[in-house]
Design a binder for these strands. Structure first.
Length: 317
DNA sequence: ATCATTTGACCCAG
DNA sequence: CTGGGTCAAATGAT
């Protein structure tokens, strides 16, 4: 299998990223191990566990995507039903430079009260630059680009589209690889400590969801509580279950990851679309800067208990 | 004042 | 021409 020559650049970059991510994950794991031995605060441990998970998640994303470059295998897995998934309605047409960027889709379902943050928060900071009504779709599509596009020339973008059927399902399609410093440092969602230059990240995370959720204007009838707009408790709240649960989850995922299932925590469904080729200008930096999250409380805590999400029962284990 | 989001206009590929 | 993606001025938030 030969890959396009133009892919090699991407490949090298991804390789490097994966390497960094895995190394980082290992380091965090080590830290966590020692933290466990010495009775440290549960927050610290949780934090570490989260970082590890993020590292894994990211590297897997990259790996899976890069796999598409090598071999054309429609990598797709769902967190619940292994049914026809490959049939994504995505234009797999590549042509111009811009559209030839690597692209893959991730289906994310949020669950009230659980790991939404991690599901929607991919660890990168995004800035919204547009929103469009899409033909046939109830909800508009949000367009985001890397916050550091200007400063670092990072061309990564993503689109967030809420599912018609399931308002809690989001289809997030990514385009391009991050070339910004974020790429080198995955663990961006830090519960405590605020070291980042700007704390845009937590905003982004929230906004993304908020927007996407808030855009029911299309089929808004007087019937529903207009102001409701799905105030899920999302955010990058580190409000994870407990250390133990989290650790178990972590272990579970590890198994899955290297087993056959892979990341299937919250119904996260990743759909990788191959094709790509277009070197992303700058090489990846390796700044030690860490965008952080200072979110400790969720502004969307006040969601309606009236409307249960039973219809979406399949999300969380 | 700065930076992010909103939103209609604009661009362009199909 | 149409629809999807992006731009950029206005607006909003901090």
């Amino acid at each position: 299998m030969e890959k396009k020559s133009s892919n090699s650049g991407e490949w090298e970059k991804m390789k490097k990223e994966i390497n960094e991510l895995m190394t980082e994950g290992r380091d965090y794991a080590h830290q966590l191990k020692s933290q466990l031995e010495s009775s440290s605060s549960p927050e610290t441990r949780e934090h570490l566990a989260k970082k590890i998970l993020e590292s894994y998640h990211k590297s897997l994303t990259i790996m899976n995507y890069s796999g598409e470059l090598d071999q054309v295998s429609p990598y797709s897995y769902s967190g619940g039903s292994p049914k026809s998934d490959d049939s994504d309605q995505e234009p797999r047409v590549v042509k111009s430079s811009k559209k030839s960027m690597p692209r893959w889709t991730q289906k994310v379902s949020i669950t009230p009260g659980f790991g939404i943050d991690r599901t929607l928060d991919d660890g990168f900071s995004w800035r919204k630059y547009g929103q469009k009504d899409i033909l046939g779709a109830k909800f508009p599509r949000g367009y985001y680009r890397c916050t550091y596009r200007k400063s670092q020339g990072c061309e990564a973008t993503k689109q967030v589209q809420r599912s018609d059927e399931n308002p809690m399902l989001f289809e997030i399609s990514y385009r391009g690889i991050h070339s910004c410093s974020q790429a080198a440092n995955v663990g961006s969602t830090i519960p405590v400590q605020n070291l980042g230059p700007n704390q845009t990240q937590e905003h982004e995370n929230l906004e993304i969801v908020k927007e996407s959720l808030d855009i029911g204007h299309h089929n808004y009838n007087h019937e529903a509580h207009l102001h409701q707009s799905f105030p899920y408790p999302l955010s990058s709240t580190p409000n994870l279950e407990s250390d133990n649960a989290y650790m178990l989850q972590l272990r579970d995922q590890n198994i899955d990851l290297f087993g056959s299932r892979s990341y299937s925590d919250l119904g996260t469904n990743v759909n990788y679309d191959f094709m790509a080729s277009r070197d992303v200008g700058s090489a990846s930096h390796s700044t030690s800067n860490s965008p952080s999250n200072v979110r400790l409380e969720s502004p969307y805590e006040s969601f309606d208990p009236n409307h249960p999400f039973e219809g979406f029962g399949r999300f969380y284990s």
